[in-house]
Nucleic acid binder design. Structure first.
Lengths: 146, 146
DNA sequence: GCTAGACCCTGTAGCTGCTATAGGGTCAAG
DNA sequence: CTTGACCCTATAGCAGCTACAGGGTCTAGC
């Protein structure tokens, strides 16, 4: 199996596969006489494993750690759980701040309904007021970001 | 006002201020004889404007466009609204995919409650099954990501 | 035999938004 | 005259790719 076929089989771009190899996430495959990479079934599974983790938005470092943990079937799986919990916590934190951000933007968007002159635009006024250090609608009492 | 004072006044790091200047987001300030940058009140406001936009997670390019739009008070503000709407849409999209991701991770996390051997870990089994192309709990019917 | 096009190779630069050095200059207080 | 806080430039690094440049290889069709 050549790199293009692996790319199709896994949905990972060819360039990305080479990149994963360069950073040590994929094992360097054997080569044909012409220098082309040839992959076996193990490589397909490893690549799919990585793709699944990326779909869960895990970092490449975490994925590498996870692959290491997964390769020791007799070990304790608490490391796996810890890794996943950390990632889960990060995702929830990000989700929360994005929720707040969405509310802020919604409030800001409400400041200008119809098109008019820039100098009268409620949205821009908010920006300029905030730049003067005044209170703004989007970042009023109920939210945490500044 | 020197760069350190501007940094304190705006909450933007000194390095970041210099970076903003380098990429053309902040105007190059005048210099003292010793080469130190000196800022006026306009610079403070521009920096605060930028900071506010960053707090709304806008990209530096968008901020630059917005600053350009804001500098023409007689123009039509529809460009401002379009810019904000685009950003708003991006934020909502990201929020939605993060919501899905959170559910996926929660489902996955449920596969392993107590610590045991890696070979028996429900979480890892999910990863391995997915790598084999089988269905996984986290990416079952109800969600869109793969 | 020769060419077009699809595939492969390496190496390097670019993207975003900083952050962190290295290696220097300036200035006021003690 | 030294210490320490501040300032300067220039460059490299982070994540996770993506996109070249500039080559080689292989197959099909003429």
């Amino acid at each position: 199996m050549r790199i293009g076929e692996l790319a199709k089989a896994t949905g990972i771009d060819v360039e990305t596969l080479r990149y994963y190899e360069r950073i040590g996430l994929l094992h360097p495959p054997s080569r044909q006489v012409n220098g082309y990479r040839t992959y076996d079934q193990d490589a397909v599974e490893r690549a799919n494993f990585i793709r699944h983790c990326r779909a869960l938005d895990m970092g490449l470092n975490d994925i590498n750690r996870l692959l290491g943990l997964a390769s020791k079937p007799e070990a304790d799986c608490s490391g796996v759980n810890r890794l996943l919990d950390e990632h889960f916590a990060r995702v929830r934190t990000k989700l929360e701040s994005l929720r707040i951000l969405e509310k802020q933007l919604a409030r800001l968007r409400n400041q200008c309904d119809i098109a008019h002159k820039v100098s009268d635009c409620g949205i821009l006024r908010e920006f300029i007021a905030a730049a003067h250090g005044e209170a703004c609608t989007c970042h009023s009492s109920s939210s945490s970001a500044s």
